[in-house]
């Protein structure tokens, strides 16, 4: 079965969500978005995405809270998570590392192209599997 690369975008900023969605969709990637941790939780309980782009500062349930919950559910342990944030403290990076996050990116540090490239790796991998 063909399985497309599904990206779950979790960010409370509407504009950014639309930017991600638009740019990422071009590469043949399925994009789903959620406005906060709670909404994201609802999605993953039904379906596990291939990769999650996770913001930290969100209302209702922030990125770390979601992450903790995610790792506790079926199939949640191995999902790749890329954290995107405005915070840059080492303590946050360490915290993220605890939950198996390998990519912790500060928004103002990275280019939008870098994010697209990361997602396309996933997309290429999935294509190979096909």
């Amino acid at each position: 079965m063909n399985k497309n690369c599904t990206v779950l975008i979790v960010d409370d900023d509407e504009f950014l969500r639309s930017v991600y969605t638009e740019q990422l969709s071009k590469g043949g990637v399925d994009v789903v978005s959620a406005a906060n941790g709670l909404e994201a939780m609802e999605y993953v309980e039904n379906q596990m995405p291939s990769i999650i782009l996770l913001d930290v500062m969100m209302p209702k349930m922030n990125g770390f809270e979601f992450l903790e919950k995610l790792r506790g559910i079926d199939g949640g342990k191995d999902v790749e998570v890329v954290m995107l944030t405005n915070l840059g403290q080492e303590s946050d990076k360490l915290e993220a590392g605890r939950f198996g996050v390998t990519k912790y990116l500060v928004k103002t540090e990275v280019k939008i192209q870098d994010i697209i490239d990361i997602i396309h790796v996933c997309a290429n991998e999935t294509k190979e599997n096909v």
Partner: peptide, 8 residues
């Protein structure tokens, strides 16, 4: 962040 990415 928004400015940067939009600009890019």
């Amino acid at each position: 962040a928004v400015l940067k990415w939009s600009g890019e």
